[in-house]
């Protein structure tokens, strides 16, 4: 195997981890509440802007920006849940698309109105340059995002499978009425799920901001990637999103390098469609 190919694969894995990172929040609410959040990409965008504002006001790297972005977005998640999601959850799937798409436009263009349309960017090397291991080059900011992706996945998975809060949330997801009879308040659980999901998304945005550009419409680009990642991984499966993200990252990198970048998305979509043929519930989704 040529040396460049190793760099391509490593780059693909890091890219995939980033995909997984900003998809985990989407898969959580999608699976827990059966809600398609068309505004997901714009939550990532908000996370990026929070990190940027924190940086310009107070300086400091991701140490300050990332927790604040998590906090702000988690709050926003709760607000969105009570103001909008609770009302449209019981409606048909179309109402959810309608509501979250409207929300996406509202968020995107509110930011646009406030910050303007210029491309913003964190200063280069804000997280500490690039590591070189035996000729392999890995950007510190991407590595940080990758590591956090693994931690977030692990954390969410443990939360859902090993804690009583997790079991309560799952109980609500399985059967609201039954959960209510057992004394669990569905509203509280779902609000918490939204806080966690939006918080994780804000964290993702803050970390991506370190090596990406920041612009109000960036959510459009990222949102569709998150959708494919989540459906490939299986709605509601956090580990599924991680595996799917890594898979897509490597496929994109390899096909981009070997057959040309303009075909890499075609490769991903076609593979995704073939995959759905054999496993209609996604990688790790349940039937």
């Amino acid at each position: 195997m040529s040396f460049v190919l190793v760099q391509v694969i490593v780059g693909g894995l890091l890219l995939g981890a980033v995909y997984a990172l900003f998809s985990s929040g989407l898969t959580l609410v999608w699976g827990m509440m059966n809600i398609v959040n068309f505004a997901h990409g714009d939550f990532v965008m908000l996370g990026m802007y929070v990190a940027y504002v924190v940086y310009t006001l107070m300086g400091g790297g991701p140490i300050l920006g990332a927790p604040l972005a998590t906090l702000v977005l988690a709050t926003l998640g709760v607000v969105v849940y009570f103001a909008l999601i609770r009302g449209i959850m019981k409606g048909p799937m179309l109402a959810q698309i309608l509501g979250t798409f409207g929300l996406a436009l509202l968020l995107r263009y509110s930011v646009f109105w406030w910050f303007g349309a210029n491309f913003l960017s964190m200063p280069p090397n804000i997280v500490g340059g690039t590591y070189a291991f035996a000729g392999l080059r890995i950007e510190a900011s991407r590595l940080l995002a990758g590591v956090v992706a693994l931690l977030v996945t692990l954390g969410l998975h443990l939360l859902l499978t090993r804690t009583s809060l997790g079991s309560k949330m799952l109980a609500v997801a399985e059967d609201q009425t039954a959960a209510q009879l057992m004394g669990i308040r569905p509203d509280t659980m779902q609000a918490i799920a939204w806080a966690i999901a939006a918080g994780a998304t804000g964290l993702a945005g803050a970390l991506i901001a370190n090596f990406f550009y920041i612009v109000p419409t960036v959510g459009e680009t990222l949102g569709i990637v998150a959708f494919v990642t989540v459906s490939l991984g299986g709605f509601g499966s956090v580990p599924g999103a991680l595996v799917a993200g890594l898979l897509i990252g490597v496929i994109e990198s390899l096909s981009g390098y070997l057959i040309g970048a303009i075909y890499k998305d075609i490769v991903v979509y076609v593979l995704f469609l073939f995959f759905l043929w054999f496993r209609p519930q996604g990688l790790m989704g349940k039937m």
Binding site: Q7, V8, T221, S253, G256, A261, I262
Partner: peptide, 20 residues
């Protein structure tokens, strides 16, 4: 000739092609 899709999420492959 290196063509890539507009608004790319990643351009590492293209830069590596050039480097190669």
């Amino acid at each position: 000739d290196v063509a890539y899709p507009v608004n790319a999420t990643d351009v590492q492959g293209q830069v590596l092609q050039l480097k190669d």
